[in-house]
């Protein structure tokens, strides 16, 4: 029987971590409460004590915890990132997820037993990039940016000894992760430098009657009429005018959902499937983990079909209530 990919679920808090473990995640990924991870949002993430408890909880149930330290270490403050890597190692994380080449070199040299994963923020879209990180830093796994088609993912897998993790569900980055600074162009803060995209401190929703304007640092990203589903004012998901035509010029507020192609992902040898959403609530984590667990367990069978109740469950928690196969499917491009 084919080995099922690991189900890798997000947790922005201890209750979310427990929800992921209790609902069938094989692995949970988390971050510290600082700028070293790409979901550096107020009120989110783990103190050392919470993380120690979370790791205990997961490992006692034979699950893994990965710590994302996946922003780029800013010159003059590199020590903060080194300290986070050191803490991850001493807390007993099953692996750390890194993007910065200098940090990969540091972790590889300082903690030779610590498993390293190349973060999606590392923008490794091809096997040459992944193999270089493997040769230089001994990475065990690479997370692919959400820009490749299914045959392209397969081509990467066939040309590298490194495990490949792909995204399975959650809000969609339309840009290659790590290669997008739209957020800092508007606000001065980006995923690379501050671990944030379209950060909350710059977001204003102003309601004018039944119309809601979504602004980022004063820039109008979208306007929602009465009853129209809203989205977070992420730059790439706003409505803008191009040659007089107003539409989602870059991307609609949609969620990625790979349920329909799970058997294909298993066949080509994807090692792990990741759920996006460390910024989401334990309720979201529980719902999505439960659903993907059921789907993955069924996906090894020859007569696999997406059950309507799975789609309904995921539909409800999706941004914009639309789902897409994203770049996996050629027409999207």
């Amino acid at each position: 029987m084919t080995r099922l990919p690991q189900l890798v679920c997000p947790a922005g808090s201890l209750p979310a971590l427990k929800a992921a473990v209790d609902n069938g995640a094989d692995t949970v990924y988390v971050g510290f409460k600082n700028a070293t991870n790409a979901r550096n949002f107020a009120g989110l993430n783990f103190t050392d004590a919470q993380l120690a408890e979370g790791i205990r909880y997961a490992q006692s149930k034979k699950r893994e915890v990965l710590i994302a330290i996946n922003t780029y270490a800013q010159a003059g403050r590199v020590q903060e990132w080194h300290a986070s890597i050191d803490r991850a190692a001493s807390l007993g994380a099953d692996a750390v997820i890194l993007a910065d080449l200098g940090l990969l070199a540091y972790a590889h040299k300082t903690h030779p037993d610590l498993k390293l994963h190349l973060s999606v923020q590392g923008s490794a879209t091809n096997f040459e990039a992944i193999n270089l990180a493997h040769e230089a830093f001994g990475i065990r796994r690479a997370v692919l940016p959400r820009v490749l088609t299914l045959p392209q993912v397969e081509y990467v897998i066939n040309n590298t000894p490194v495990e490949i993790e792909t995204f399975g569900f959650g809000s969609l980055c339309v840009m290659a992760e790590g290669r997008c600074i739209l957020s800092s162009y508007a606000t001065g803060q980006s995923p690379n430098t501050h671990g944030v995209c379209s950060p909350a401190a710059f977001v204003r929703w102003d309601n004018q009657g039944k119309t809601m304007n979504a602004r980022l640092n004063g820039i109008l990203i979208d306007r929602f009429e009465d009853g129209e589903p809203a989205g977070y004012p992420t730059l790439c998901k706003g409505r803008f005018a191009v040659l007089g035509e107003t539409y989602y010029a870059l991307e609609e507020p949609v969620s990625l959902n790979v349920l329909a192609i799970l058997p294909e992902l298993i066949r080509i040898g994807v090692a792990a499937i990741k759920v996006e959403g460390r910024q989401r609530s334990p309720a979201y984590v529980a719902e999505v983990t439960r659903t993907l667990r059921a789907a993955l367990d069924a996906a090894g069978n020859a007569d696999f079909q997406v059950k309507p109740q799975w789609s309904t469950a995921l539909d409800k928690v999706s941004e914009g209530h639309q789902q897409t196969l994203g770049a996996y499917s050629r027409p999207w491009k």
Binding site: F41, G43, L44, W205, D206, N207
Partner: peptide, 16 residues
């Protein structure tokens, strides 16, 4: 409405 950062921090706190 208003200071979204404080709003999201509260939301995240209650979630956690």
């Amino acid at each position: 409405e208003g200071d979204t950062e404080v709003g999201l921090a509260l939301k995240n706190l209650l979630d956690a």
